[in-house]
Computed example of a mutant assay.
Amino acid sequence: MSKRFIFTILTLLVIGVAAAVAIFLAKGYTFNPKEGRVVGTGIITVTSVPDAASVYIDGHLTTATDATISSLVPKEYTVKVIKEGFIPWEKTVKVNEGLVTDLKVTLFPAIPTIYPLTFNSVKNPVLSPDGGKLVFIVPSGKKPGVWVWTFIDNRPIAFARGGQPHQIAANGSINYNEAALRWSPDSKQVLASIGDNNYLLQDEQLNTEPRDITPTLTNTNKTWEDELKQRDWAKLLTIQDVAKRQEASSAAIVRWSPDETKLLFRKDQLSAKEKDPKAILGGFKVFDLETESKYDIPDARTQTWLPDSRHIVLVEDGKISIVEFDGTNQAVIYAGNFEDNFAFAWPDSSRLVVISSFPTPTASEPNLYGINLK
Rank of each mutant, 00 (worst) to 15 (best):
L10T: 10
L13D: 08
A18Q: 09
A22H: 08
I23M: 10
G28V: 03
V38T: 08
G40C: 08
T41W: 00
T41I: 01
G42E: 09
V55I: 13
I57C: 03
I57E: 04
S70E: 13
E76R: 13
I82H: 09
V105D: 03
P116Q: 02
L117N: 03
L117R: 08
T118G: 07
S121A: 15
K123N: 14
P125C: 06
K133E: 07
P139Y: 04
S140T: 12
G145H: 02
V148E: 04
W149K: 14
T150R: 14
P156N: 07
G163Y: 04
G172I: 03
A179F: 02
K188D: 05
S193G: 07
L200R: 02
Q202F: 05
T208A: 15
I213S: 10
T214Q: 08
P215K: 09
N219S: 14
T223V: 10
E225C: 09
E227S: 14
E227K: 13
R231V: 09
I239T: 10
I239P: 01
V242W: 10
E247N: 05
E247F: 03
S249H: 07
I253A: 02
E260M: 12
R266P: 00
K267I: 09
K267C: 03
Q269K: 15
S271K: 14
F284R: 00
F284Q: 00
V286K: 00
F287T: 02
T291P: 03
T291K: 13
I297C: 04
D299Q: 12
Q303T: 10
Q303K: 15
W305H: 06
L306M: 15
P307V: 03
D308S: 08
S309D: 04
V313P: 00
V313I: 15
L314Y: 02
E316Y: 12
G318H: 06
T328R: 08
D340L: 05
P347K: 11
P359V: 05
T360W: 01
P361T: 02
L368W: 06
N372T: 10
L373T: 00
